[in-house]
């Protein structure tokens, strides 16, 4: 029979897009092994300095070190991961209960639906600036990742909601009713029927919430102080000193971790040959 030319052309195109998508990252990885302090070409030599170099004076960038010797980077990474996990842990139950509740028709459902999605619609700067004003008004002045947390929750929840609700099994309510008729209590119905049906959405929600809050900058920069998260820390550092391959070393490290982790998750989730998102 005929070949599926659409498939071949689209496949090549997709590979091309992924390549362009990864091009900066490939470059980041290569340049992170540069021996000098510039992030441009040509590459004169390779070294591991930007990973494991001890603190010292390097060219025009002043006092610096490899990422493994930089306590502030360690702090920023810890903060980011804590924020990401905290966000995901809070968002997941919120998404579960709101998506399940929104299945039923009740007065004000549309309004509530739009309110819950508002974090998706509201421009970042309004959330950031508004939160800053809000904290000032209620007297919170100590900024940390815990003042950022509510913003990342509000911002990532709509993604989980969209993802979960769009993939609801249309027969879910029927299955629940059947289980109830067969004698399962409310909690049992949730544990044995509802949750397994939305399990993959829940896991995807967790990862989305984590990923989005990891890269969140536009909102958090208004309500964070000190070293802050990776995005705010790197941004602040870059606005005072010229960029060095040190940042690329950090980027390469994150990339390595994320690819490994995501492949493992993708593998586990798809073992049963079911759609994961």
């Amino acid at each position: 029979m005929n070949r599926d030319w659409t498939k071949i052309i689209l496949g090549i195109y997709t590979v091309f897009v992924i390549f362009i998508f990864y091009l900066p990252l490939i470059l980041i990885a290569i340049l992170s092994f540069k021996s000098d302090a510039s992030i441009t070409f040509p590459i004169l030599g390779f070294s591991l300095y930007w990973y494991i170099g001890p603190p010292g004076l390097i060219g025009t960038s002043g006092f610096t070190s490899g990422i493994f010797y930089d306590p502030q980077i360690a702090q920023a990474i810890t903060n980011s991961i804590t924020l990401g996990i905290a966000t995901a842990v809070i968002v997941v139950p919120l998404v579960i209960i709101s998506s399940l509740t929104l299945r039923y028709a009740f007065k004000g459902r549309d309004l509530i639906f739009y309110l819950l999605l508002a974090g998706f619609i509201m421009p970042a700067i309004i959330i950031g600036l508004g939160a800053n004003i809000f904290y000032k008004t209620v007297g919170i002045t100590e900024y940390s990742i815990w003042t950022v947390l509510p913003l990342t929750v509000v911002y990532t929840m709509p993604f989980g909601l969209i993802l979960t609700m769009a993939r609801f099994d249309p027969l879910m309510v029927e299955y629940e009713n059947v289980a109830r008729v067969l004698g399962a209590s409310g909690w049992k119905v949730f544990r044995k029927i509802t949750f397994p049906l939305i399990r993959t959405q829940v896991i995807s929600t967790f990862f989305f919430a984590f990923t989005l809050s990891l890269s969140e900058f536009l909102r958090s920069s208004f309500v964070i102080a000190g070293v802050g998260t990776i995005p705010t820390y790197v941004y602040n550092q870059m606005s005072v000193t010229a960029p060095t391959p040190k940042w690329f070393a950090l980027g390469t490290l994150s990339m390595a971790i994320s690819l490994t982790l995501l492949f493992v998750v993708a593998y586990i989730l798809t073992r049963g040959q079911r759609r994961i998102i």
Binding site: I18, F21, Y22, P24, L25, I28, F207, T211, L212, L214, S215, F217, I230, P231, V234, Y235, M238, W247, F248, L250, G251, S254, M255, I257, S258, L259, L262, F263, V265, A266, I276, I277
Partner: peptide, 15 residues
């Protein structure tokens, strides 16, 4: 899909 997600773990400023 996950290959498309992975780059988002690299900080935006760095990218």
């Amino acid at each position: 899909t996950f290959m498309l997600v992975a780059p988002y773990w690299v900080d935006w400023s760095i990218r």
